[in-house]
Design a protein around this nucleic acid. Sequence first.
DNA 1: TTTTAGTGTTGATGAGCGCG
DNA 2: CGCGCTCATCAACACTAAAA
Length: 334
Amino acid sequence: MNIYEKVVDNMEKKRQYNATLKDIAQKTGFTINTVSRALKDKDDISAPTKKLIREAADELGYVRDSIAGSLRTGFTKTIGVILGDVSNPHFSIMIKGIDKQAYKYKYNIIIFNTDEDETVELQSIRSSLSIKVDGIIICPTQKCAFNIDFLERTGIPFVLIGRKINRDRFNFVVMDDEAGGYIAAKHLIDNGHKRILTITGPQYISSAIDRTSGYKRALTENGIKIDNKLICETGIQSGACYKRLKNLIKNNLNFTAIFAFSDMIACEAIYTLNELGLSVPKDISIVGFDNIQEHMLLPVPLDTISAMNTRMPEVAVDVLIKTINTPTAVEKQQ
DNA sequence: TTTTAGTGTTGATGAGCGCG
DNA sequence: CGCGCTCATCAACACTAAAA
């Protein structure tokens, strides 16, 4: 095959791939509109015509140009999903749930990973708007209010997931983190623990605040005095807990149990304890959060908080789609 | 510099046809 | 004439390369 044949071959291949409604119309003798309607299975097109057009489309290797479609309809059938850390199983499980639910509505999702960085977060919001997603599901970094304010001002439908801001104005889908914190601490108390270390997330994150206050309530209700030394705030990025916990133990902090902000932090804590010659649960008991082992088995079974965690993605998508279809509706879910 | 033409798809509207 | 069925015509979407 010489260079010219190659070019022609490529052009033909490209043409095949790029077949449009126009090509099908020419091939079948119907108008472009009829072809469009036939392929969309509209009921004002007769069955024989549909069959003919579909066959022609297959033969030409037609693939719908969704960009052109969006140009016409104003919808891209795409949801932007903006999350802090997709390498955390908690979030990847969440993504899977969102995708599965979005599929039911014939929606695609596009994922943005912010690394919990507000600058990246803003860029992700901008990119989402740029590619004209119909709506956004976002787990906000909560490091500054600007990003979400900006998002609100654009008027695009969005739903917060996992973390909440300002109950009245925004749609958010969260679990009852306060209750989760309470149950976790209560569980450890019931097992005889009085010195319970909580390794919690940064206190600008709503879920961290709520879980910590649940923890405090459990202690208070059970007559245990709150020791601020046992409330350890740490970053939620990988490695943060390891350093922090190691330090605490080296400084001889006295505790018999840990309530971790997430299962990932719990895993890191177990790793750290093992490294220091302590074993779980013999020496130290641990309760995590998120129940990731429901989706992936861990080396050691982990006591953890699940609640309605697994339904959050579903609900978030439902609420978002509803908002997209009725722009004025404001919903609140918990 | 401004204007035009072109991209692919589809909702709204309308027209032709056969039948009762 | 009125109706249902089937398909056609038109216009618009947001942006850009090319023409004027």
